[in-house]
């Protein structure tokens, strides 16, 4: 098990009702964290429409996560 801090943004934060939480997860990659928290962020958004950052650096869904990491889950962006 890894202790991971997951931060939710925009729609994900509203759905989760919290901005962040620390979870104990069996997760190898960022994608594992996305799917493990999907019930919390209550979204049917496909993984491919979303983005992820680990410890404030943009990452890919295949990026490995380590104990103590902060994983930032971004729903589809819409700047401009």
């Amino acid at each position: 098990m890894k202790s991971l801090t997951v931060r939710y943004f925009a729609m994900f934060r509203e759905n989760a009702g919290i901005a962040e939480e620390t979870l104990q997860l069996e997760a190898e990659t960022a994608a594992d964290v996305f799917f493990a928290t999907r019930d919390r962020h209550g979204s049917g958004e496909p993984l491919g429409h979303c983005k992820v950052a680990i410890n404030d650096v943009m990452a890919s869904w295949e990026s490995p996560v380590s104990d103590g990491d902060e994983v930032l889950l971004f729903p589809p962006v819409a700047g401009g």
């Binding site: 971004f74 729903p75 962006v77």
Partner: peptide
């Protein structure tokens, strides 16, 4: 690139009283 890459989200408020995150719901 700014539109598709930067972590920026847009929530619209409609005349109907609804609101929605653009590109999401």
């Amino acid at each position: 690139q700014v539109k598709v890459r930067l972590p920026i989200w847009k929530k619209e408020f409609y005349a109907s009283g609804d609101s929605g995150w653009v590109n999401c719901e």
